[in-house]
Nucleic acid binder design. Structure first.
Lengths: 209, 209
DNA sequence: GTGTCTATTGACGTCACGTCAATAACAGGC
DNA sequence: GCCTGTTATTGACGTGACGTCAATAGACAC
């Protein structure tokens, strides 16, 4: 019987190890099966060690979100601040949507875990809703409002509500397509997803062709 | 000290009482706070009695869904089977959307609970996804496909994927608006929500005006 | 080698769960 | 009214995951 000697790491190293273990876990199994024990066995540390770095598993996924949320935000920023003439607006929008979708392709399972966890825990819901979704809604709403005033988009649209509907659609549809660990879409399927999102945004905001 | 005498009910009566208690609970607090004990105190029965009628709380919400899912399905059926000429298609769609939205106004918290529970439990996810969402997607997809072939809707649309995106958008947006027990929208806000959903569906499928 | 600091963990109490044998309310026969 | 069989109901139990804390033992300074 070997002594299974303990190891001792620097705090940030252990913390990164836990975050990496959580991410790896979520690449294989859904959040509902993620237990503190299940994450910690992948680090070689004991379960109680977890609580030296995170309050609970909701805190953990919240921290995972921090590494991804910024990406989504940075990308849509281009469209938000882009020029205000008709043809260009559409192109910039399409580019922003592609970039945002790409983030979901890469971090799908993590984002899915956050969305699931938002249903479990009030703090995660708060961070997800107001730290990500509502910020995107506000940004998109501002842009739509500007385009309506510029006459590029139709006046029947309620900017804020249209923004919310489109953002929620995109979030949900992308989670459905890329958030499930067990089902990775093919390149062809992914292209259909991207195309559909673009079609709906463009047709809603700028009309056909 | 009075004897707190037990009462004895007929099975279906007890079962209905539990379902009613669950629904009442969800009108006040979110699913994540719903415990078996918390539901059963509202019935005057003990916690173990619950397990004579339901396997667990996920079984409970699944049963709640049965009383609502049919409504959503019946309503969209009209649009699905409606006539295939341009002007009429749009009107029938709008009517179907209003009816479906109305179901969310009435049963919002219950539907929200199911959606949350789908993140908790694989069986609920199965029922929700394949028993409700995917059935709606299939129905809507069929209709879109027909409209595309009839030349009413644009050929760029991928019927199946467009259906999925629109259904998920509508589900999510309506849950966001009407699924939170604590925040009931005013009549004005509700009208903005309905209008936005219609606008996106109509503009996507049939183009502007 | 000795001592300090702190990362790590074994052991504990809690909470909600799901089960089961025991209990007692009701229905029906007399 | 009394007895009796059926079954709705529950007290008591074992389980699994949680979050805490005092005790343990690496790592580094000297």
């Amino acid at each position: 019987m070997s002594g299974e000697r303990r190891r001792r790491r620097r705090p940030e190293e252990a913390e990164r190890a836990i975050l990496a273990a959580a991410r790896a876990f979520l690449e294989e199994r859904p959040f509902r099966e993620m237990t503190v024990e299940g994450v910690m066995v992948r680090t070689g540390l004991s379960r109680p060690a977890f609580y030296a770095y995170f309050r609970d598993r909701y805190d953990l996924v919240t921290r995972l979100l921090e590494g991804v949320g910024g990406l989504l935000f940075a990308l849509d920023w281009r469209w938000l601040s882009g020029g205000a003439d008709g043809g260009e607006a559409r192109e910039v929008l399409v580019e922003a949507l592609r970039a945002g979708s790409q983030t979901f392709v890469e971090y799908g399972p993590v984002l899915r875990a956050i969305a699931d966890a938002a249903g479990y825990d009030a703090r995660v819901e708060e961070v997800y809703r107001y730290g990500l979704i509502e910020r995107l809604v506000a940004a998109v709403g501002t842009r739509i409002s500007r385009d309506v005033e510029a006459g590029i988009s139709p006046g029947e649209l309620d900017p804020e509500e249209t923004a919310r509907a489109l953002v929620l659609m995109t979030e949900r549809y992308l989670l459905d397509a890329f958030g499930r660990p067990e089902r990775r879409p093919s390149r062809r399927e992914s292209a259909a997803v991207f195309g559909t999102i673009e079609e709906i945004w463009v047709r809603t905001l700028y009309g056909r062709e």
